[in-house]
Amino acid sequence: MSAVGFKDYVENKKIKDIVQKIINNPTEKYISNYGKDKIKVELLKEYGDTFGIIVRGELDENEEMKIFSVIPYKKGKLPMDIDEVDVIYSDNKDDYYVYFEDIKTGNPITFYLQNVVDYLDIDEDEEAYVENIRLVALSTEGTVILPINKDQVDKNLEQEEEEWRANLLELARDGDEEALQLLEIDAEQSAELFKVRTKHEDLLTILEGFFIPYGLNDAEYSILGTIEDFKIKTNSLTKEKVYILDLICLNFKLQVCVNKKDLVGVPSKGMRFKGICYVEGYLEFS
């Protein structure tokens, strides 16, 4: 909640008051006759530039809303190309998580699904395709750190390596054994080089970015990425300041939303962001 400007709203009574206001006057409302005998409801209330709170639940026979979850959200603006996705249902909270592999890096990523009603509205016999994913990370703590010093030659070499690796990944997905072997050799060599360098260098001077699972929650990650752009927005209710950071991390892009009070340092283009984040995403269906 802090990431979208509700840092001081941790008391149960305050949350209940906000939820009641959202039910009475949502910015957006989504309804699905899921399973014919259930009516799923999502109520979105914006409190800033594409960020706010989702109240999710079901309507009973008396049209009273049974609330399952209250979720802070930020609508992502940076699309990611994907190959295929798996949607996983978590029945303990009626939540949905999405699993996929990033095409360019092969990294597995799990995120919390924002637009559940859109997903539930797809009939089993209907052909639907996910055109892209828009990821956003809500951060509870973060730090702005210096970038790695690179000249143009370093950047060109890095780009060539990324294109070479992405091409091999594509061939490996199609069953090319030689491409798979080359990727394994590259991974072994990179790991060996990493071991050597960590004896003499700091971790943050070796790794320009990372996206590592953190804690027990599937959608929680430790993230390090380069800031390509940023904005500062104000929560219309609490007046708390929120940073929206456009990051490039391991050759893919995502937005990070973090409360100004939770960020150490002042962001600027070219600097890096390091923080603990809860990753959410929006599936865009054809």
Score class of each variant (00 low, 15 high):
Glu160Val: 08
Glu46Gln: 06
Leu157Gln: 10
Val19Met: 05
Glu208Met: 10
Pro108Trp: 03
Asp49Gly: 06
Thr27Glu: 10
Val144Tyr: 06
Ile88Asn: 11
Val153His: 07
Glu178Asn: 10
Tyr9Trp: 07
Leu237Arg: 15
Asp94Phe: 06
Lys231Gly: 04
Ala3Trp: 02
Thr198Gly: 00
Thr238Tyr: 04
Asp8Arg: 05
Val87Thr: 13
Asn24Gln: 09
Glu127Asn: 07
Thr205Ala: 05
Leu171Cys: 04
Asp102Gly: 03
Asn25Val: 00
Gly215Phe: 10
Tyr112Met: 08
Glu28Gln: 05
Glu192Cys: 03
Ile122Ala: 12
Ser2Phe: 02
Phe194Ile: 04
Asp86Phe: 10
Val98Glu: 06
Ile212Arg: 07
Leu135Gly: 02
Lys29Cys: 00
Cys249Tyr: 00
Glu84Lys: 13
Val70Trp: 12
Val98Lys: 04
Leu171Lys: 15
Val144Trp: 06
Asn235Asp: 06
Asp262Gly: 00
Leu44Val: 00
Phe68Trp: 15
Asp174Gly: 07
Leu135Arg: 01
Asn251Tyr: 15
Leu168Lys: 12
Lys195Val: 04
Tyr96Gly: 10
Thr234Pro: 08
Leu263Val: 03
Val98Phe: 04
Pro26Lys: 01
Ile88Lys: 12
Asn217Ile: 07
Cys249Phe: 01
Glu11Phe: 03
Gly76Arg: 06
Tyr30Phe: 15
Ala3Phe: 01
Glu162Asn: 11
Thr105Asp: 05
Cys257Pro: 00
Ile22Tyr: 02
Val10Lys: 12
Lys13Trp: 10
Cys277Thr: 09
Ala137Phe: 04
Asp123Asn: 13
Tyr119Cys: 11
Ile248Pro: 01
Glu284Ile: 14
Leu169Gln: 04
Asn24Asp: 11
Val10Ile: 09
Asn217Thr: 09
Gln159His: 14
Ile232Val: 15
Ile244Asn: 03
Leu138Thr: 07
Leu250Gly: 01
Gly175Lys: 10
Asp176Ala: 12
Leu216Gln: 11
Glu220Trp: 00
Asp186Tyr: 11
Leu224Ile: 08
Tyr47Ile: 12
Leu263Arg: 07
Lys29Glu: 07
Tyr278Cys: 02
Asn92Tyr: 14
Lys239Met: 08
Asn217Pro: 00
Ile133Ala: 02
Val85Met: 04
Asp154Thr: 04
Lys241Thr: 03
Leu138Trp: 08
Pro213Asn: 06
Ile31Leu: 12
Asp246Thr: 05
Val136Phe: 06
Gln255Tyr: 06
Thr234Asp: 11
Glu61Val: 07
Val136Gln: 01
Glu192Asp: 13
Ser32Glu: 07
Asp83Met: 08
Leu237Asp: 15
Ser2Thr: 08
Asp86Lys: 11
Pro267Arg: 09
Lys40Leu: 04
Val98Asp: 04
Gly76Phe: 08
Glu220Lys: 12
Phe211Pro: 05
Lys21Leu: 13
Glu101Ile: 03
Phe6Met: 03
Ile276Lys: 12
Ser2Trp: 02
Ser190Gly: 13
Glu163Cys: 00
Gly5Asn: 03
Val87Ser: 09
Lys13Glu: 14
Val256Thr: 13
Asp202Glu: 13
Lys239Gln: 09
Tyr47Val: 14
Tyr30Thr: 04
Asp218Met: 14
Val264Asp: 11
Val256Ser: 08
Gly142Asp: 13
Thr27Asn: 12
Gln152Pro: 00
Asp176Ser: 10
Ile67Asn: 08
Thr238Ile: 00
Val70Phe: 15
Glu64Gln: 14
Leu182Trp: 09
Leu43Lys: 01
Ile103Leu: 15
Glu188Pro: 02
